[in-house]
Nucleic acid binder design. Structure first.
Lengths: 348, 348
DNA sequence: GGTGCCGATTTCATCGATAGAACCACGGCG
DNA sequence: CGCCGTGGTTCTATCGATGAAATCGGCACC
């Protein structure tokens, strides 16, 4: 029975024969309201199909109840699964979620930080890829921000994992399996353009190689700007074209590793008999690739929950020093590393 | 040099020595403003780092510039890739995107339709899974809505593909390849609980089977509530456990098909030599599975663009009769159907 | 010189909800 | 007999931006 225009609190108040403040009290529940007054008001609300106007509310009390999540790419499995958990965690805290795609352009990342506060947003969960930390230090900090992923400085609240340790563990694992010439997909030798994720995971690999007394051959590191499956396949093909022998491939994400599996399979290189392959993230797919991927599992629910919690707290109290939460990770061994690799030799 | 609280139009006006309305005029650009007045105002805005408060604006003129997208699952590749395109299309039109996850619960779908208008939202793109069309007919239509995916009635703007035709084409394709006993993953015999997508694609399959004079064996139809990779694997295993011979498996999404590939591989059943496998959607992954999946490609950019365009138009003009856009699809043949299948026989 | 007009700018009310203070009826207590 | 706290309610100002209508300072024309 809703009219053409939606009902306002004034209408409800008129119908129930009370003031708008009383209606407000019923709605917000912050102040006790006489039982039958409340009943009258509630009945009126129902009858008019009243829904409070959140624009007005948010104007009045400066909160919109919406947080934004900005990720470099929305289309990857990792993003999608993370988003899923963030939305669920946010819902529990009463937040709606707005999404932004940065395409890992620093300009866009910075823009979000400064402009976003206009966008009816209470806070931002940002996965910075190429944003220099400096951009976060000063004025822009008006908007509550939680950074997720790899961040090298401690300038804002942060949730991440120990990428160095994760990559090192995985490297040790393949070394234990007998790998000696270990290739890396997603690592970037040119430090200038490398993302923090890339740098840290590469650092972990190097560390484990050093421990084992193995050399780090820069010719065994390949990357592709897009950390997608296609990007992984291309990087793998490039690596193969270099004609340098290897017996394991560490993908810095499961998507990269999946692409690598495809490229290797296309060349008739067997996994894990010839070459071991590993991923990072443990997305749903990695249990179902051929062979299933060994990977570094991140508890995404915990990760997302921590990010949302931190942000909610920061919104409630914008002051205070930045905190950092490191979510535990776990090595998951599957078929892609269940062998001692014979190794791939150029020309074979 | 921004203060602790963000600057308002009043502050800018004071600094520039004009009225707030003039600042507003400069910001919106709807009314001509004297060149040097404008310059003064712009300088003041820059100095104060002024950003208009969208809550206030949206209260005033009833538009928030935000649209919502509600999908059953956010974590599937299809959702993620679609979301990616929707966000991009929305950005071109100046809209931000809020996401909601319905978990395909009708309650939640309906709730979004009625409550969403409170949520600072100008319109909604909804992928209804179990919502009876009736829920859309009346009062709730106050919120501009575009339905995407399969909808059986024509009660709101709609963007979809011809699922019946797509499924029929795919079925004909495997029949041409020599398949005779064709299994279906995602089809549901119990009509009551089937989703529209399931019903329509099944209908397409049946139609093509009938054309070819092949029987439709209900024992060759399996489903799992989650149309995920894991769901596909489980459904495939159930199908195998029934002990009914088949020589092709039509997955109603690429995720289901990917799960099926995994399960088949686990049993040592070869694709496509023993059994053909096909998907639907053409997500990025399907080019990289082992073997690569034949599938029904949907132009997701066009799909998303059409949905956003339709919604933008509906927001601009809420009256008018519902329109429906059918995005073309295309059969993509890859290795998973590049053979004449020998067939799987129980016990082998 | 007065009138009319024009474009630029200001004044004022308003969008809908909410916090704070004022207010009211009532019974208890000094 | 009057003051006071109590629980509930109403009154009023306010959040920040914007459209409508009023205002103002020229400028042109008769």
């Amino acid at each position: 029975m809703a009219g053409s225009t939606r009902a306002t609190m004034r209408d409800v108040a008129a119908l129930a024969g009370v003031s708008t403040k009383t209606v407000s009290n019923v709605v917000t529940g912050t102040v006790p309201v006489n039982a039958d007054t409340r009943a009258r008001v509630e009945q009126a609300m129902r009858k008019l199909d009243f829904v409070p106007n959140l624009s007005a509310r948010s104007l009045r009390n400066g909160r919109s109840g919406v947080i934004a999540v900005a990720l470099p790419y929305l289309a990857t499995s990792f993003s999608a699964e993370l988003l899923d958990h963030i939305v669920q965690a946010a819902r529990l805290k009463g937040f709606a979620v707005q999404i932004e795609q940065t395409g890992s352009e620093p300009r866009r990342e910075r823009e979000l930080l400064s402009r976003a506060r206009a966008h009816l947003i209470d806070g931002l969960i940002l996965n910075p890829i190429r944003l220099e930390d400096s951009a976060l230090t000063d004025a822009d900090r008006q908007l509550p921000v939680v950074l997720i992923g790899e961040v090298e400085q401690q300038v804002a609240d942060h949730v991440g994992i120990d990428s160095v340790a994760g990559a090192a563990e995985m490297t040790r694992h393949v070394i234990e399996r007998g790998a000696r010439r270990i290739a890396v997909l997603g690592g970037d030798e040119q430090h200038g353009i490398a993302t923090a994720t890339s740098r840290l995971r590469l650092q972990g690999v190097r560390q484990a190689l050093a421990e084992a007394g193995l050399p780090a051959d820069p010719r065994l590191t390949a990357n592709h700007a897009d950390w997608t499956i296609a990007g992984g396949a291309e990087a793998m093909i490039e690596l193969l074209s270099r004609g340098v022998a290897f017996d394991a491939v560490l993908g810095f994400t499961d998507s990269l590793a999946t692409g690598a599996l495809h490229a290797l399979h296309g060349r008739g290189i067997r996994v894990p008999e010839d070459v071991l392959v590993t991923g990072f993230d443990d997305v749903e797919l990695s249990r179902f690739t051929e062979p299933a991927l060994s990977t570094v599992q991140i508890d995404r629910a915990a990760f997302a929950g921590a990010a949302v919690d931190l942000l909610a707290e920061r919104i409630a109290d914008p002051s205070g020093t930045p905190r950092s939460i490191t979510v535990p990770h776990r090595l998951v061994v599957r078929d892609s590393t269940r062998a001692t690799p014979g190794g791939w030799i150029p020309g074979s």
